[in-house]
Design a protein around this nucleic acid. Structure first.
Lengths: 199, 199
DNA sequence: GTTATCTTGGAACGGTCGTTTCAAGAAGCT
DNA sequence: AGCTTCTTGAAACGACCGTTCCAAGATAAC
């Protein structure tokens, strides 16, 4: 008996993700979202609820679409350090070139903004950080088993270090850092974990 | 002949710095500033200009009061790696405890926000990053001369790495990271530059 | 004490914020 | 077709945004 939605909620949410990602939450108005998605205020509120719920939905979608695939590819790769190098290469490529160049990372941006005051957002950030750490830890355990790590390198601590390095890349890329400079830094970091320079 | 200001502009600016630092630019209204500083809208605009100029003034003041002293202390320290360790210790202490706990860094927060779209802000961020890098580079050159670095460690690249690590600490501390965890990560990073674990 | 100049208080500006409301429209089921 | 139920369009809500304006107040020079 009911009517059915005249738009695709997932496609709309993708647009919302891009807005929040590029412009930030605080500086993106409902009007911006209405204009960008083409759908009406009523439909927006009926489908997603208010702005805060919309932002949380955007965070979830970003994680499903961007973070989780990258984390999974990392954790399942059996090559060890080369997998980490590839992870950072892909990261830097996305952050510095293409459609999302200089957008940084929606999640990293959230850590720096006022939005992290919300308990739900904070919980999301904690979990996201944990997932990044775990993926890095998993691949570093492989690296250790393969004898790729310097004897003094602890995989768990190294995972923490690379996680912080990831945030640094996300932040600096948004402010305009060059891909080459970021790459060189990452290569050096991986080299120092291995006990030798570049790999 | 003129009247004279009935308040201390520097003290007012300090209050403004704290507001922007803690709450973010976009979520801090002029009314918040009026309330927190106790001075009038007219005085505010007559002294500092609009919000954007006020934000730039706050950035400058933050740099003078926080960044530059830390950078100078770092660059002038002749001990090498221990100076770097002390720099990060002090950083983590400020970020995780005391009056500014979980506020992150005003400058790091700016890199993640929409405010970095402004050319003046962007220029400030670039320069700030350069000053951080130079300070780290200077002390790492000392460390190299003192034989504290592993042969494969290049001081300039290591400075880049530590700068990114600084951003990571700033970001994660704002989202609630523990001081102990951040410290352990930093110690491990410095250890890997030296070729041995924690020094 | 008078005058000139700047500062202060406070109201007011148009615009935008996130959100709500409600009538009109569209789709599915009998 | 008719009825029900949800969706859509569009106007409107009060609150707040950054900013401006002007009269009243305060200070220093004469």
């Amino acid at each position: 008996m009911p009517d059915v939605k005249h738009f695709d909620p997932d496609a709309a949410l993708d647009t919302v993700v891009r807005l929040f990602w590029h412009q930030g939450v605080a500086t993106t108005g409902i009007q911006d979202i209405v204009t960008a998605t083409g759908l009406n205020r009523s439909s927006l509120y009926a489908t997603f609820g208010g702005k805060q719920e919309l932002y949380l939905a955007a965070l979830e979608r970003y994680r499903e679409q961007w973070s989780r695939p990258a984390f999974r590819g990392l954790a399942e790769d059996r090559r060890g350090l080369p997998a980490v190098a590839e992870f950072f290469d892909a990261l830097i490529t996305v952050r510095c070139s293409g459609a999302y160049a200089r957008w940084g990372c929606l999640v990293s941006n959230a850590q720096a903004g006022a939005e992290n005051g919300d308990p739900d957002v904070r919980a999301f950030l904690d979990r996201h950080h944990e997932e990044l750490r775990e993926a890095l830890h998993a691949v570093l355990l492989v690296a250790e088993a393969e004898g790729q790590l310097a004897p003094a390198t602890d995989p768990a601590t190294a995972a923490d270090l690379l996680a912080l390095l990831t945030y640094g890349v996300n932040l600096r890329s948004r402010a305009g850092a060059e891909a080459g400079s970021l790459s060189a830094t990452v290569v050096a970091a991986l080299g120092s974990l291995g006990g030798r320079p570049a790999e």
